[in-house]
Design a protein around this nucleic acid. Structure first.
Lengths: 246, 246
DNA sequence: CGCGATTTGTGCACGCCTTCACAAGCGCCT
DNA sequence: AGGCGCTTGTGAAGGCGTGCACAAATCGCG
């Protein structure tokens, strides 16, 4: 994933710290740390060691310390990290204090589920509008929202300041929907449709392809099967995660 | 993702080629190449150049050539790659010629959608069983399958030689379900529940966390917002993909 | 048969990320 | 007040992945 970044924004206004220049790999892990921290906060923990948090997030403790060091020194040597403070910091960096509005296009099988997915609301995202191109779906109510026709997208975007759009349409419609989203001013897209989207350079696209995940697992199955059929009964370990007392 | 691998399996039985030692990054891209190749095959193309296939898959052509070179020389200089041959090769490597059986645990909001997701069946995976712990869900019919109680999982696994399990339960149940799957002999797990799973080293886990994807996009929104508020109106490009004439 | 156009396969250099190992800093206990 | 144990933050090394640039190979045409 070849994201690139360059703004270190040295002297900035207000009391907010300058926007740090985080490695992409770190960014991808921050949400995982955040989830683990929320879990710890619920159990009443005031502080965590890098070792403890790393275990809860399924990573190496050195990696975790380096990641957190990129956003400043919020730990205390000999003690650990202040859970509440770290949560605030990560949420600020991720921009989750904005309670971002998300719209979803494509209310088919998958879109239906996403519209009702509790994990979005509980982690700072509000699904504010549902769209579909199929007239027979327009008007349907899902989880308190009414499905609207995709032609209304630009109007809604103007009212709600939509920044993030989710595409859950069949592959053939994905590019057209992306074009509509971009035209409406959406600058971040989460795409569940297989295929490559073409968007302007200022728009971010992340892709989730469920079949690809299965295919990768299938490869490892194939590999494991061809290994166990051989002499050395090597354990052939692969990407696991550490324990996490449920 | 710290997968590791070591078996180059030098001299092997039968006519099948020795199992190559592919970089993890390459493996993750093979499914994307495969999808693009199928698309090309439908349009009647006999051969593709690395440039053309790379564009269709949204990657650099040099990267594509290096990836393909890892699985052997299946291209012809001056001509390109044989589409049908390459499809067979990639499907063999990914183990998709086995038509793998998949079971799904957790028939809630998301699980319901996954059970009916057409993208699985169309790409070599058969969802053969649905499970849930909630007695009120057991017996429900979804897409031609009947939801069974999770206690029956081990019996079904014995009949169907299940290798891949999908977890779509609430976070609190995910670890328990993983334990059941592992006990039943499942060695690959696709986990949609937030949190870290603890499994034996021979079991592969891939995680898909929809909220994390949104959080990463939210970060980029935050970054872009703090950049546009500054002097140099840099374009601030990020991970896009190339065109793909639909 | 030879030549030019085209495209693959790959050696090499560069940069990012991970991991180790340790110095610096903090709190607690005596 | 001093010392001791614990934990963070980071310098340095190594590995992995990417992309360039070019040699090697193949086809088609005259």
């Amino acid at each position: 994933m070849s994201q690139q970044r360059q703004g270190s924004t040295p002297g900035d206004a207000g009391g907010v710290p300058a926007f740090p220049d985080l490695p992409e790999a770190t960014i991808a892990r921050l949400p995982e740390y955040l989830r683990a921290l929320h879990h710890l906060a619920e159990t009443g923990a005031e502080t965590v060691s890098s070792e403890g948090l790393a275990a809860a997030a399924g990573v190496n403790s050195a990696k975790l310390r380096k990641d957190l060091s990129h956003l400043g020194s919020y730990g205390t040597r000999g003690v650990g990290y202040d859970v509440a403070l770290l949560i605030d910091q990560i949420e600020y960096i991720l921009g989750l204090d904005k309670n971002r509005a998300v719209c979803l296009v494509g209310v088919g099988n998958l879109g239906h589920a996403l519209a009702g997915y509790a994990g979005f609301a509980s982690r700072g995202f509000r699904v504010v509008a549902l769209f579909d191109a199929d007239p027979s779906k327009v008007g349907e109510r899902i989880n308190g929202l009414t499905v609207r026709h995709i032609d209304e997208l630009s109007e809604v975007a103007a009212e709600e300041s939509l920044a993030i759009g989710v595409i859950a349409t069949p592959p053939g419609s994905a590019q057209a929907v992306a074009d509509v989203l971009v035209a409406a001013g959406v600058t971040s897209i989460l795409n569940f449709a297989p295929g490559v989207l073409s968007v302007p350079p200022n728009v971010d696209v992340r892709k989730v392809d469920l079949a690809i995940e299965l295919q990768i697992l299938s490869f490892h199955e194939h590999r494991k099967a061809s290994l166990t059929a051989l002499p050395g009964g090597r354990s052939a370990a692969a990407g696991n995660q550490e324990a996490f007392g449920s």
